[in-house]
């Protein structure tokens, strides 16, 4: 069971308090009603499913209830960062460098 740092509770909590919620930073288009089918497909169905560092959403569903974002390495399962929903994507290289020095 992973420990996940909840940016709202400001501490690490056991994974079973959380629920994974898919890829992060996929903005819902403003003009949904006029969205082309192709654009809809890209928004709703197509995901990178990358190996390595991914930006993903979690919800502290059995905790503070908040959705937040995380950067996690899908190979090591290590979190590089978690941050509040709505905050911009952190710089991946900087994060990796920072983790690299502290590890």
């Amino acid at each position: 069971m992973l420990l996940i740092h909840c940016p709202y509770c400001a501490e690490e909590r056991p994974e079973i308090e959380f629920r994974h919620a898919g890829e992060a930073h996929i903005a819902r288009p403003d003009a949904m009603a006029d969205l082309s089918e192709e654009a809809f497909q890209g928004y709703f169905f197509i995901r990178d499913n990358r190996k390595g560092e991914v930006f993903e959403r979690w919800r502290h569903i059995h905790g503070c209830g908040r959705f937040f974002n995380a950067v996690r390495n899908t190979i090591t399962d290590k979190f590089l960062a978690t941050y509040e929903a709505g905050k911009p994507k952190p710089d991946l290289d900087a994060l990796k460098a920072q983790k690299g020095t502290s590890a």
């Binding site: 959403r57 908040r66 709505g86």
Partner: peptide
């Protein structure tokens, strides 16, 4: 409720 919270918190905050 989860679905509604998702939209409320992340799409229509």
């Amino acid at each position: 409720l989860h679905h509604m919270e998702d939209y409320l918190q992340t799409e229509f905050p």
